[in-house]
Design a binder for these strands. Structure first.
Lengths: 228, 228
DNA sequence: CGGTATCTTGATTGGTATCAACTTAAGTGG
DNA sequence: CCACTTAAGTTGATACCAATCAAGATACCG
């Protein structure tokens, strides 16, 4: 079993504030797990027994709306923690997490995390800061959803994806999302997203390589996102 | 100066987890302030030097969108804390808070709160729980904004307002919001909100007493909110 | 009492959802 | 290797919803 003390991923999140001693304990109680593309890490309504630390891969975190459509709330990647909130508020998860590609995640049992939270103020403060940050972003998303058009949101989403995942050898955004996934991020019907993507392509703002998207005119996307 | 130890409001939020000693210190450094209706407690972009504890009254917390419209993110009332997030993430506030009626608020300096956070795990944990809860609600709002129609959102908002503020002697929702405020909560143009309110009135789901709203058929609003 | 803000309604335009049909891509089993 | 199945992507036509502009009504305030 690989040791948390030696894990590089740890440096990327709040776990970096744990002491050597705490890390040793964590190594002893954590379990590793491989999650295949498309597989769920947890379901909406499930009671989580711990949190997940993403070692490799990306997953979409989503929530079902009352009308039966799926809304993707965030994309969680290498170095992120997943499930702290449900654990802290001690409620069933309100979200579902599904792997977008093959993943490696570590599972850390609830008791261990709660113990660390109660004994290590630096750790707690770090989690608190993360959460404050997430909340701020959530506010921004609310404003965008409430006041921007689908076209603006699509442009913005493409830019965010580019910044978060960068580009691969073919110059396409280095994460494969289906058209439906994209629609579920911006909160629209799949056909609408497709139509707008198609518009962007005609205007040479983006192009397709296979199904993947390559951004040609970042500047123009910026303008569209801001409403021109 | 009134004493935090004896303040009833304290029981309503995380401050209840502070020790007697900590409360005495807080009494000595806090300041009280009256905020008139329409006045701002703080502005977007302002660097807060502490947090606010709402003793009396209600304020709207909002954010300007890039297209120049105002989105109300939440309504903060008696017993709530305000400004913890900016303080924790140590950034300028991303939000603006404006009084909806005359308010009494206490201001607690940053240093005092940070000291309590670093020394009292119960307090920190309580703040953390609050924030996890807020984040969960934010997720719900995102889904609603992304996927519900304006009509659904209006119905939902009316129900939430009713639950949060109750009714007064005239059986109207016990908080006065302008039509514009309502529109800014549901994220639509003022005229659209007015039109839909007018529809609801015609269908005898609500009625107006002056400008205030009285809910006649809660059941019907529930149905509309869920998409029928 | 005039001026201003808020509220209200109508007409028009544009954006988005929905339904339906078709294409392409990716398996799967004979 | 081909025929079949299924999922994903694409496009057009239509109808509905909501934003915007314009104009009038009502309440509020100095």
């Amino acid at each position: 079993m690989s040791k948390c003390e030696q894990c590089i991923i740890r440096q990327l999140n709040s776990i970096k504030h744990l002491s050597r001693e705490e890390l040793v304990k964590m190594t002893n109680c954590k379990t590793s797990r491989v999650v295949k593309k498309g597989e769920a890490i947890f379901e909406e309504g499930e009671r989580l027994k711990g949190i997940f630390c993403i070692k490799e891969g990306v997953c979409k975190v989503s929530k079902m709306s009352e009308n039966g459509r799926n809304q993707i709330i965030s994309l969680v990647t290498r170095g992120d923690l997943l499930g702290e909130r449900s654990l802290i508020s001690d409620e069933a998860s309100n979200l579902k997490a599904v792997a977008l590609n093959d993943m490696q995640v570590c599972f850390i049992p609830k008791e261990e995390i709660l113990k660390d939270l109660s004994k290590n103020p630096n750790f707690t403060m770090s989690v608190l800061k993360d959460m404050a940050q997430t909340l701020k972003q959530a506010d921004n998303v609310i404003v965008d959803m409430a006041q921007k058009t689908v076209k603006q949101r699509l442009a913005e989403t493409l830019l965010k994806l580019l910044d978060k995942f960068g580009t691969n050898a073919e110059n396409t955004i280095d994460i494969h999302l289906s058209r439906e996934d994209i629609a579920n991020i911006i909160g629209t019907a799949t056909e609408s997203a497709i139509r707008l993507l198609s518009d962007f392509k005609k205007k040479k703002i983006i192009e397709f390589k296979g199904k993947d998207i390559s951004i040609l005119d970042r500047n123009e996307l910026d303008k569209i996102a801001q409403g021109f």
